[in-house]
């Protein structure tokens, strides 16, 4: 599939997954890829604490007001690739949404004071899900206003996201009349419209994340009727510098890496080392074998998990390699966005 087509399938894409799988990184990489293709993109971040600014070489946290992260001809091109459209980002916390809602309803002057006095907490408790609905309502409004060609939402961890999305249905029961009910039914309509909204699930090729993403996918589809994009499998291990795609092609030893499945003997390794100009001791050979065995075991485990994921969840998989760094930076996002484009290109059009 073409990256532009992929980016324009739905205006709002909610990136979801359990904690620690790299939702924010995927959000940034997706936005960067779309902008490289001329798709004007807005990142909406829901908890006000994410690493989005750092991913684009800025400091601090996101604000309620939009900031421009990328624009054509900017200085990030060397690290992140050329871009043909802007990437903007903003925060949208439940409190932001509630205060904005109150402001829209003629209470601009007092809304902040009410928030600090705790009355809003009481109201939000009395009507569970109201914060979530207001956030979703605001996202729906950004879609209607066509604030960008693509709006990527960096969602909180799966549990919260699921609660937030299902709250719409709870509210339909709880609130029978008035503007909140109207808002709720509009949100339900929005979530169910595949042209307007879809969810991109992110996971890792590990036991628990695989189980959880499958559970989440079925729940999202059955309960909420939201369209699911491909599953992004993040942090795939490369073996011997060969990067792997999600279906395991070019996988590991004996394949394109040129390494036989059986680890070479010490003497073969020493000969090979000598050809590369290195005099390896037998202790070195043991060490290299141990390191290789560790990595191939991890890799085999990963392949098993990918196979389980295909079995549990009949969605296309988009694999992204582990970016070898401990601190994500613009170069890392640039790398991952180019990998994302490659992986999408291999997807069948639907």
């Amino acid at each position: 599939m073409d990256a532009v087509e992929f980016s324009r399938q739905a205006r709002v894409v909610i990136v979801a997954g359990k904690g620690g799988v790299g939702k924010t990184t995927i959000t940034a990489a997706f936005a960067n890829m779309a902008a490289a293709k001329g798709v004007d993109t807005l990142i909406v971040e829901l908890d006000g604490k994410s690493a989005i600014p750092a991913d684009f070489g800025l400091e601090g946290t996101l604000d309620y007001e939009e900031v421009v992260l990328r624009e054509p001809g900017d200085s990030l091109s060397a690290q992140m690739g050329e871009c043909k459209a802007r990437v903007r980002a903003r925060r949208l916390t439940p409190d932001d949404a509630l205060i904005e809602y109150l402001a829209d309803h003629g209470m601009a002057r007092i809304s902040k004071r009410l928030a600090s006095s705790g009355v809003l907490d009481v109201v939000a408790t009395a009507i569970p899900g109201i914060r979530d609905i207001l956030v979703l309502g605001k996202i729906k409004q950004l879609d209607l206003l066509q604030s960008a060609d693509l709006i990527v939402v960096d969602a909180p961890a799966t549990g919260h996201t699921m609660g937030a999305l299902s709250s719409a249905f709870g509210l339909m029961d709880a609130v029978q009349v008035g503007p909140i009910r109207l808002q709720t039914s509009e949100v339900i309509e929005f979530l169910g419209d595949p042209k307007r909204c879809e969810v991109l699930l992110v996971t890792l090729a590990e036991e628990t994340p695989v189980n959880e993403v499958a559970e989440a996918a079925f729940e999202l589809e059955d309960k909420i009727g939201i369209k699911l994009g491909p599953v992004i499998v993040n942090c795939l291990l490369p073996v011997c510098g060969v990067e792997l795609d999600a279906d395991g092609e070019a996988a590991g030893p004996g394949n394109t890496s040129g390494l036989s499945m059986k680890l070479p003997s010490s003497s073969a390794l020493q000969k090979g080392g000598a050809l590369m100009g290195l005099k390896l001791s037998s202790a070195d050979c043991d060490l290299l074998s141990n390191a290789m065995e560790f990595e191939t075991t991890r890799h085999a485990l990963q392949q098993r998990q990918l196979a389980r994921l295909s079995e549990l969840l009949p969605l296309p998989q988009v694999g992204l390699p582990l970016y070898p760094t401990s601190k994500m930076d613009p170069a890392g996002i640039g790398f991952l966005s180019s990998k994302l484009e490659e992986a999408i290109a291999k997807m069948e059009p639907r």
Partner: peptide, 21 residues
């Protein structure tokens, strides 16, 4: 010899990647 060299190269690269990590 080529096989031996490329095996050695792959294994040393793997070790280097772990060391970098």
């Amino acid at each position: 010899g080529h096989r031996e060299a490329s095996d050695a190269k792959a294994m040393i690269s793997n070790w280097l990647a772990i060391r970098a990590q």
